[in-house]
Design a protein around this nucleic acid. Structure first.
Length: 1051
RNA sequence: GGGCGUGUAGCUCAGUUGGUUAGAGCGCGUCCCUGAUAAGGACGAGGUCCCUGGUUCGACUCCAGGCACGCCCA
């Protein structure tokens, strides 16, 4: 016996029950033990701050569905959680908590050790919120053995990775311009300014200034104009840049001459009193090497050394500004490289806090952004200012502290990505990206343009850069230590006072406060060597995750080798330039191969209105609330079936979740309920190991559908296009419930377990069990709940992915049933048009089929068609021409190559019906032209004539005979009465098998009365209304009836 | 400004090497409770496949150019 099925089902309750069961029976752990073959998955570590948001939940569902599929497909899929514990986000949260506004407070007052301890505490505190979220959506993942980037073994592996790269010459220190946050007092990499909200609108001054030219034009005082939104950088101006191919105009105004791009003169006509007077034009290259006077005096001396000249540069555009770009090589990347190429250096009068140094007495101590005002005042005072206004533009901000960034030249450590670019590109070819355009699109393009990576941060909470430099001026000795043992050995040899504490001691922590204590002795000059102050970019650490998570190469060498690269990884598009990229860079650098074989990039969930999901706007429902309302399965089905799986955006709609219940879960539940109801009546017990062998066409049809569905679903999972896995499942459920079960009901009704009934049970059971397996990765709760009841096995998630045998494949039967379904559809439409309910039997239908369809279909599908349409006969139309016109559909695919240019005329004529048969050929004609077409190359069918009582679709034509004989009318009335009786039974609350007494009052053929008694399991009785359990009075076809029923007393 | 992607029914989306009647779900309209299912079923209406040009016997599909939107980058 199967447990009885409740008709009102509450999915969230089932899910809670299943979660408890999984935990108690350790199903996840068992699933990992199933196979010796492993599918390697790397989990991208999230920051442990805050709570999971919609995006995190989505990616978790994707990872879970894939892992469950591969588990069923015969792999063990260990899923180890990870935490990205280091980096600026954590540091900033701690700064906020402690009210720290300045790095000096950390270094001088609090101390690095205390600060890092706070970071450590914060990271530990935040970890707890995640587990219940992840658990509730049904994600199986190993929390207990999560790797953490702050753990000693992990950090040691990171040191090792660093050293490997260093030894290969891939890491170097350089003084150059990088994005810089003067609050965090650190440089940032380009990945740090990737966050979508890091580039935000900001109001800045917009000024045009003039530089005095040393070459006068037309004998008048001559000036170069330049435009900037960072007036503070004018203090450090060293050169001007022009586009070599642009045309520049000399504009005369009030006795002076101004040079700017000709194309932009009209835009800035107001500078010249509205009427610019161009006296001469130059090509940009003519201006190159001309000299000018600096506006500010601080670097005036450099004029002797080739500074304050005009250079040509390709970054000059005519989009905004005046076509002459002012360059301060300390504060602009383009400026820096331009000067460097031209052998010019850098002058940087701005300190780490973003304030001018004493080198600039007038502005010393002023923050650069704050100084803009005074700089502009000074420009005005010395006559350089030509224009001043304010513009709002997008400007990069620090992704955590929101301070506007500046670009600033400074010392930093770089990874020479450029050196390995060829190999990065080569190994990208080995990666299967989903969607595939990422390979040569966003990722490939990013690799092509890859620049050296700034891997150092002037911060505290991260893996320290393991480089020691001799403090003696000019010595230049450097050592890189890549393991605890190396550090211990090196430190042990030190005899300076500063190193006494650390000498020879085993470190138990590699954070900055410990490693900075390690001082080495310079092998050349004997002076102390101290560690450089920077820590590593936390992307270096997460990129080193394949090594760090298993403490490679210090431990688990074999394990590592069998778990690299990953078989698949899954993250959002932001990681294309971050985690995916850094994993790839480090793997290629160290092992000369890609770090992952398959990479699924999913899309972004947006709010219902298409806007960004925003906690402050509250434009979305908390996913946990949706799970409480509809269940996690519904949420999963909605997301997994959406194009957001493959990097598209999805406007998330709560109704979409609800739809899954209506379209997938409830029909599934009802099919299950149907099976259980009858199986219990017949004492049928399904055997999961048995494959049905049925001679019944319906069974063969649903098995053929099942075969086809599995092909599609399996393919979808195998190729990582998960969103394609659900359409076939939904379609199958539709086929199962609205055709197979609907047509098969009568087979389950009779008494006893006949051969046909057993075949029906076997088929339905097999279909249900297989369906649940296909649904298990996506809807793991309800699939397991039903599967366990059907099979008595421990879990669907321990079952093997179904292999529907090839022998069930039957494309012809699917085709043929499709024709029957079309016929039924047409019949129902004709009935509806004529206002004839299905309950009223009709004499018959006549069918015309297109020439491409075997007319044997009608005979083979006869019973179903008659039953569905409630007609007595189904025949082929003797003379379709009477009610329909002949339609010809040439097979263009075949005729095209055969007939070439003529094919269009043939198609046109054939469609117009200009054809006749001649032997085994069809002659198509147009005027005097005739073409003889092979019969199999043209499909003949009929289209109903207007006004005739026929309908056609897909070449099938149907005519309905609506003649109502008295006998048919009588049968229709009987059917109505039967409906009334069944309705009464149901409302009276009888069981299906209860026997009753029945009274029918009214005019009806006694034969039909007898039939109704049989159908209703009834004996005729003379029941007054008072004696009856229920009574109905109705008038049918003008005849008044009274029907009363009473449950028969048990004998 | 550049790169990538997208544009198909009111909405969300499918659409097989190019083949002449472009599909589904939701929504909408009409109808229907014959013992699994009203959190259901049937039927129907609804399309300039973004635009322009090209290639081709034939283009939603391929190519070029434009437009719109999204993401990424300058």
């Amino acid at each position: 016996m199967y447990p009885p099925v409740s008709s009102s089902v509450k999915f969230p309750e089932i899910e809670r029950e299943i979660l408890a069961y999984w935990k108690q029976s350790r199903i996840f752990e068992q699933s990992l033990q199933k196979s010796a073959r492993e599918m390697v998955f790397y989990d991208g570590p999230p920051f442990p701050t805050g709570t999971p948001h919609f995006g995190t939940i989505f990616v978790s569902i994707l990872k879970d569905a894939l892992a469950r599929y591969f588990t069923m497909a015969g792999y063990s899929v260990p899923r180890r959680w990870g935490w990205d514990c280091h980096g600026l986000p954590i540091e900033n949260a701690v700064e906020k908590k402690l009210g720290i506004g300045d790095k000096s407070q950390i270094e001088k007052q609090l101390g690095v050790a205390a600060f890092n301890n706070e970071c450590r505490k914060l990271v530990a505190d935040c970890n707890t919120a995640w587990e219940s979220y992840i658990n509730k959506i049904g994600r199986w993942v190993d929390y207990a053995h999560a790797y953490r980037t702050l753990d000693l073994p992990y950090m040691e592996s990171v040191l090792w990775v660093f050293k490997q790269c260093y030894d290969q010459g891939l890491i170097y220190k350089d003084y150059r311009v990088t994005p810089y946050c003067y609050h965090c007092e650190t440089s940032l990499s380009f990945s740090d300014i990737r966050e979508s909200d890091s580039t935000r609108p900001r109001q800045d001054p917009e000024v045009i200034v003039r530089f005095k030219a040393l070459d006068a034009v037309a004998g008048k005082p001559t000036w170069y104009l330049a435009w900037t939104t960072t007036p503070w950088t004018l203090i450090s101006n060293l050169v001007l840049a022009v586009g070599a191919d642009f045309s520049y105009a000399a504009v005369e105004h009030e006795g002076a001459v101004y040079i700017m791009a000709e194309a932009l003169v009209p835009k800035w006509a107001k500078l010249f009193g509205g009427k610019p007077h161009v006296v001469k034009t130059f090509v940009g290259s003519e201006l190159v090497a001309r000299r000018y006077e600096p506006i500010f005096p601080y670097y005036r001396d450099l004029a002797k050394e080739n500074y304050f000249r005009i250079l040509a540069a390709d970054f000059v555009t005519l989009d905004d500004g005046v076509g002459v770009v002012h360059c301060a090589p300390a504060f602009g990347e383009d400026d820096y490289w331009l000067c460097k190429r031209n052998g010019l250096g850098v002058r940087n009068p701005v300190d780490a806090k973003g304030c001018f140094t004493a080198e600039i007495p007038e502005f010393a101590g002023q923050n650069v952004h704050a100084a803009n005002k005074d700089v502009i005042r000074a420009l005005k005072a010395n006559g350089a200012l030509m224009h001043h206004s304010t513009i709002e533009h997008n400007y990069p901000h620090c992704w955590r502290c929101r301070t506007p960034l500046i670009y600033r030249a400074m010392d930093a450590w770089y990874f020479a990505v450029d050196k390995i670019k060829d190999r990065l590109l080569k190994h990208n070819e080995e990666i299967n990206w989903v969607p595939e355009h990422v390979k040569h699109g966003r990722f490939g393009k990013w690799l092509e343009g890859a620049r050296d990576w700034n891997i150092s941060r002037s911060r505290y909470w991260g893996t320290p850069i393991p480089v020691w430099e001799c403090e003696a001026a000019g010595c230049g000795q450097r050592r890189v230590l890549g393991s605890l043992a190396e550090i211990k050995d090196a430190a042990g040899a030190v005899d300076t006072a500063g190193a006494a504490d650390a000498a020879g001691r085993e470190l138990t922590d590699l954070h900055k406060e410990f490693l900075d204590e390690v001082v080495l002795k310079c092998p050349v000059c004997g002076k102390p060597m101290r560690r450089v102050p920077e820590v590593l970019d936390c992307w270096f650490e997460s990129g080193a995750m394949p090594f760090g998570q298993c403490h490679y190469p210090f431990e688990n060498k074999e394990w590592f080798e069998s778990h690299f690269p990953a078989d698949f990884i899954v993250e959002y598009p932001g990681q294309i330039r971050c985690w995916f990229y850094y994993l790839h860079v480090l793997a290629v650098a160290l092992l000369d191969r890609a770090a992952f074989k398959n990479c699924l990039v999913h899309g972004t969930l947006l709010a219902e209105d298409g806007g960004k999901i925003s906690k402050s706007k509250k434009n979305f429902t908390d996913p946990m609330e949706l799970i409480d309302r509809y269940g996690a399965d519904a949420l999963r089905l909605y997301l997994l079936g959406s194009p957001a799986v493959v990097m598209e955006d999805l406007d998330f709609k709560n109704a979409g979740v609800h739809d899954q219940i209506k379209q997938v879960l409830l029909p599934l539940w009802n099919a299950f309920s149907f099976f259980v109801t009858y199986a219990n009546v017949d004492q049928y017990a399904g055997d999961p190991a048995r494959q049905p062998e049925s001679t019944h066409a319906l069974d063969q049809w649903i098995l053929a559908k099942l075969y086809r569905a599995e092909q599609e679903v399996g393919q979808a999972f195998k190729t990582f296009y998960l969103n394609r896995s659900l359409t076939p499942v939904t379609a199958f459920i539709e086929d199962l419930t609205n055709w197979y079960i609907r047509q098969s009901r009568a087979r389950f009704w009779g008494g006893g377990l006949t051969t046909d009934k057993r075949q029906a049970y076997d088929t339905l059971y097999y279909a249900l069990v297989t369906l649940l397996k296909m649904l298990a990765p996506s809807a793991p709760f309800v699939a397991d709940y039903l599967y366990r009841q059907l099979t008595g096995e421990a879990s669907v998630h321990l079952a093997a992915w179904p292999k529907v045998p090839e022998q069930y494949r039957n494309d012809a039967l699917i085709e043929e049933t499709g024709v029957a379904q079309t016929i039924v559809s047409l019949g129902l439409a004709l009935r509806q048009k004529a206002g004839l309910r299905v309950r009223q039997p009709l004499p018959g239908i006549q069918v015309a089929l297109p020439s491409s369809v075997d007319s044997g279909v009608v005979a083979r599908q006869m019973d179903i068609i008659r039953n569905e349409l409630n007609v007595k006969t189904v025949t082929l139309l003797a003379d379709p021409g009477a009610v329909a016109t002949l339609r010809a559909t040439p097979n263009a695919r075949v005729l095209g190559p055969k007939w070439g240019r003529a094919v269009q005329a043939i198609i046109k004529a054939a469609k117009a019906g200009q054809l006749r048969e001649q032997g085994d050929k069809i002659i198509v004609f147009e005027g005097p032209q005739e073409w003889a077409i092979d019969r199999q190359d043209i499909d003949l069918s009929y289209q109903g004539k207007d006004g005739m009582d026929v309908l056609g679709d897909k070449g099938v034509l149907l005519a309905l005979d609506k003649t109502l004989t008295p006998a048919l009318r009588e049968e229709g009335i009987a059917n109505e009465l039967n409906r009334i009786i069944q309705d009464l039974r149901k409302t009276a609350g009888y069981a299906v098998s209860d026997r009753i007494e029945l009274t029918i009052e009214g005019e009806l053929d006694p034969a039909w009365c007898k039939h109704l008694l049989q159908l209703a399991l009834a004996e005729s009785a003379e029941l007054g209304e008072a004696q009856a359990d229920a009574t109905s009075r109705e008038t049918i076809e003008g005849r008044a009836f009274r029907v009363s029923i009473r449950k028969k007393k048990e004998a």
